[in-house]
Structure formats: C-alpha cells, structure tokens
Design a protein around this nucleic acid. Structure first.
Length: 284
DNA sequence: AAGCACACCTGCTAGC
DNA sequence: TGCTAGCAGGTGTGCT
C-alpha cells in the first residue's frame, strides 16, 4: 500500500499531532505485529515515554523516544513499517476500535494513535541501536532516500552496472534507492519515457538524467498531493483523509486506457512477479 | 551472487 | 445470488 509519498504524508501528520505527546499506555492485539522482539519489551520501552520526533527513511517511520518532555535525552526509537495494508490513525481514544486494530498507543491528551493492519504484514519494533545519523541498525541495509538524502545518481548508475535485470527492478530495490514501490516505479518510468523491462545497464547519460529528474518530479508531486488513495481506500492519512495523486496516475492501474501523451492504449505486463504498466509507443 | 518464486495474510472483485 | 480463483501498495527467505 504505502510508498514514500504516503509514508511522508503520515510523517508530516505525526509531526503536527502526536510529537511531544507522552505515551500513557500501550495495547497490542494479535501475535504478528510485534515479532522481532518480546512484545513486553516494546510495551515497556514505550510506556511513559515522549514521542520526540517523526522521521522517515524509505518506507519506514522512525519515532525517537525521550524519557520525558523536560529531559529530552533520547532513549531509543519506535520503528513502524506499514507493509501492504497497514494504516496509522490518530483519533479520540473514546472512538470505537476498528476491526484489525493491532496496536493502540494511548497518549496524554486523551487521544490514541492506532495501527490498523488487516493482512498483518506490517510491524512495529523499538530499538536503541542507532548509527551516527540516528538510523536504527535494522535499517542499515537501506539505500539512499531520494528526498531525505537527495538523489545520488552515481550510486544508482553504479548499482545498475552490477546487474543484468530490468530497470524497474532497480527502482524498487530498497537496498539501492529507498521508498519507491510498484505504483511510483511505473509512474516515474512513464515520465522518464523508459520501459520497465529495459535493461538497467543500457541507459545513456541523457536517459539517466531523465530518470533522475522523473524520480524527483513524481515523488515531489505525489507528496504535494498527499499520496495516492486507490479504490480500496487502504491508504488514508492520519486523520482518515484520502490523497489525490491517484488522479495524476498516467499508467498505474490504467491498462487498456489511452496514454495521456499519445493516446496509445497502456500495456500491462507481468514483470518480476508484479504488474507493470507502460505506454508501448512513447516509452523505450 | 543476482534473480527468481514463494511465503506471509485478509479482503475485494471479476467471472462463471 | 453465490461461489471461487485471482489479485493487491512490501519484503524476508531460500533456492538456483
């Protein structure tokens, strides 16, 4: 469900509405959401702590924890990954608890931050192991984040030179560039006028420049539109509002519809086990 | 060692 | 109307 623009929208909402709040209690439901560690460890690490910030690395949310509002010494971070169906919602603690709610963080203003996740692929964990940049050790394998770190085209080109696979597989490889998933890979490749199945190592210098510009353009526009909410409405922001970038999708989910650039029907194929959408006329 | 299939789950929809 | 197969925004593992 959520890729970089959706996670970034949630991060900004968290910054507005839950940062500086103290966690008064934590309620977990189901065995899968906290699976890297003993759930009791997570509950103990969160209870009484202040949510001191909201960061994002790729599709991961990282909330630094402070021992109290006055003493802002950091005592680890809460890491959240929404995976396919996870959703964070912030509402009054008295509101009815939705089906598939896996975790509830009761905050000191009578509100609740809830993690809702039907498919249970998403996860929460806490860790105190941070590198110099404040990133959890568990996220060390992530590549650069095009918005947090800036676009590192030389790293992208170097990774491409080491592989024989498709360009789209490079874009969604979180070890190289973090945050792009199936929707935005297709949209970026459309804007860059490059085919998803194109060999990653076959791009010319001009094509690399087009790709780099498209990555920043598409992700930036999608963040500005507060992400993409598809027909199943699985992604909504912290207050339950839909994003608007789905209205700008040129190819994703539009197989058979006319390409907005040339009118040729959009092709949908299977690539590396996922759907890929492109215009057969204007992407090469 | 890159690249692929598959597993992890629930819910929705298209097609019969 | 009702069933079922197939598909879904992601990623970790284990095989080749």
């Amino acid at each position: 469900m959520p890729e970089l623009p959706e996670v970034e929208t949630i991060r900004r909402d968290l910054e507005q509405s839950v940062v500086a709040r103290r966690v008064d209690s934590v309620t977990l439901a189901g065995p899968r959401t906290v699976r890297r560690q003993d759930p009791a460890v997570l509950v103990a690490a969160l209870t009484g702590r202040v949510l001191a910030g909201a960061q994002r690395f790729g599709k991961y949310l990282v909330l630094p924890l402070a021992s109290s509002a006055a003493d802002c010494a950091q005592v680890g971070v809460l890491v959240v990954h929404l995976r396919m169906s996870g959703q964070l919602v912030h509402l009054d603690a008295a509101m009815p608890v939705e089906r598939h709610t896996r975790a509830r963080l009761r905050l000191d203003d009578a509100s609740e931050l809830r993690f809702v996740d039907p498919r249970t692929f998403g996860e929460l964990f806490v860790t105190e192991e941070l590198d110099e940049a404040g990133r959890p050790a568990e996220l060390a394998g992530l590549g650069f984040d095009p918005l947090v770190d800036g676009l590192d085209l030389s790293r992208l080109r170097e990774a491409a030179s080491r592989r024989s696979g498709a360009l789209k597989a490079l874009l969604v490889d979180q070890r190289v560039i973090a945050g792009i998933g199936n929707i935005y890979a297709d949209e970026i490749l459309f804007v860059a006028r490059l085919r998803p199945a194109r060999s990653a190592r076959s791009l010319s210098a001009g094509e690399w420049r087009r790709l780099a510009a498209a990555i920043l353009d598409v992700l930036g526009a999608a963040v500005a539109a507060r992400g993409s909410t598809l027909s199943d409405a699985r992604y909504v922001d912290l207050k339950g509002a839909a994003g608007a970038y789905q209205h700008h999708h040129a190819v994703y989910g539009r197989g058979g519809e006319p390409c907005p650039r040339c009118g040729t029907p959009v092709t949908r194929v299977r690539l590396a086990g996922r759907s890929a959408h492109f215009c057969p006329r204007c992407q090469h």
